[in-house]
Design a protein around this nucleic acid. Structure first.
Length: 345
DNA sequence: GAGCCGTGGAT
DNA sequence: TATCCAAGGCT
């Protein structure tokens, strides 16, 4: 690949980043653990969403040793609402590896750090460059968008293999004296200037070194095929409440969607099928009243839940069920939180 | 390699 | 309302 502006691009990007970067909580530290936490939280998640989670998380788990010792329910409760909950479990597993096998020091080579659970090619490069200054590539969606335009690359970024092209591009361009600012600069540029739609080219510090801008249609890049369609699922949800004000909760399976999180009794049904009475067959509890509470849908990345929610008062007491105080401490996915907060008090 | 895995904001 | 997506990784 012939690109005539390597030195100019590198210098313009780094100086722009060091002048214009946003003041974000994880930019006040070089602690590899804290950088690691921020990078995991930022996976597929917006900066504004992450900030309060990041701050709270490090108040509760200020060191790797404390995170390593946390109970899973406590950990997931801190992650509640952030999504992709396996990230939390994998982060804790990775941290435990560092505490036990690396004497509490995050490894500083791609070879070693990549062995840690939940640390893929991007997170490895991000932690290495930002915390340790190691000149390793950290290619995320921003980087592919920015460099597809700067270098006028038309490969389909929806094809996994395409990432190698961009990793090679970063290897060519990266500032070996300031890998941290270079990598963060690429991402910051993608977030603030070189946006997916309506890029602000007139404000861009590397406009003069951008081939796509030169050719006139940077907004046409990157090329990205592939669309996902979501599959609908239909559920009846039963909020069972006993005479002591306890609710029946169930913990989800330990793998798959929303693993190990807690929910009210949920029964899948066919589309258009009306079966709220099924709870009387599946629950030994004797239903006194059963009222329709609400209906709503919740959209996931690859499926949609259509929920019909019923609240049922049952006879007697069920000591194994959970009172409000206990429920507040259990990690629940957002659709269940919606129901919980909508319950008549 | 394709599908799975959350959520809420922007357009 | 519909679509796309935002600092990806695992299976």
């Amino acid at each position: 690949m012939q690109y005539p502006y390597i030195e100019q691009f590198r210098h313009a990007l780094v100086t722009w980043f060091e002048r214009e970067q946003r003041d974000l909580p994880w930019r006040h530290t070089k602690d590899p653990y804290k950088i690691w936490v921020s990078e995991v939280m930022l996976q597929q998640t917006r900066v504004d969403t992450v900030i309060p989670y990041y701050t709270r998380f490090l108040e509760i788990f200020p060191t790797m040793e404390q995170l390593a010792q946390a109970d899973e329910d406590v950990l997931l409760k801190q992650w509640e609402g952030l999504g992709y909950y396996s990230r939390a479990r994998n982060l804790q597993a990775g941290v435990r590896e560092v505490v036990e096998q690396y004497d509490g020091v995050v490894p500083n080579t791609r070879e070693e750090i990549s062995k840690l659970k939940g640390v893929g090619p991007y997170t490895a490069g991000a932690v290495l460059s930002i915390a340790y200054g190691v000149p390793e590539h950290a290619v995320d969606g921003n980087v592919m968008r920015v460099l597809s335009r700067v270098l006028n690359i038309h490969e389909d970024i929806a094809v996994p293999k395409t990432k190698k092209t961009f990793e090679a591009a970063v290897d060519m361009l990266i500032d070996h004296e300031n890998a941290s600012s270079f990598n963060q600069g690429l991402m910051e540029l993608g977030a603030l200037i070189c946006t997916p739609t309506s890029p602000k080219c007139l404000l861009c510090p590397v406009r003069d070194y951008c081939i796509a801008f030169e050719e006139g249609e940077p907004e046409k890049l990157p090329v990205k095929t592939k669309k996902v369609k979501t599959k609908p699922l239909y559920y009846d949800v039963f909020v069972l409440r006993d005479e002591a004000g306890r609710y029946k909760l169930e913990q989800r399976a330990s793998s798959g969607l929303l693993a190990n999180m807690w929910q009210f009794v949920m029964v899948e049904r066919g589309e258009g099928v009306f079966t709220p009475q099924i709870v009387e067959q599946t629950e030994a509890a004797q239903i006194v009243t059963q009222d329709h509470l609400m209906s709503f849908k919740h959209v996931f990345s690859h499926l949609v839940w259509h929920m019909d929610v019923y609240i049922a008062d049952v006879k007697g007491e069920h000591p194994a069920w959970y009172d409000a105080e206990q429920i507040e401490k259990l990690p629940m996915p957002v659709p269940m939180l919606k129901i919980w907060h909508a319950l008549p008090r």
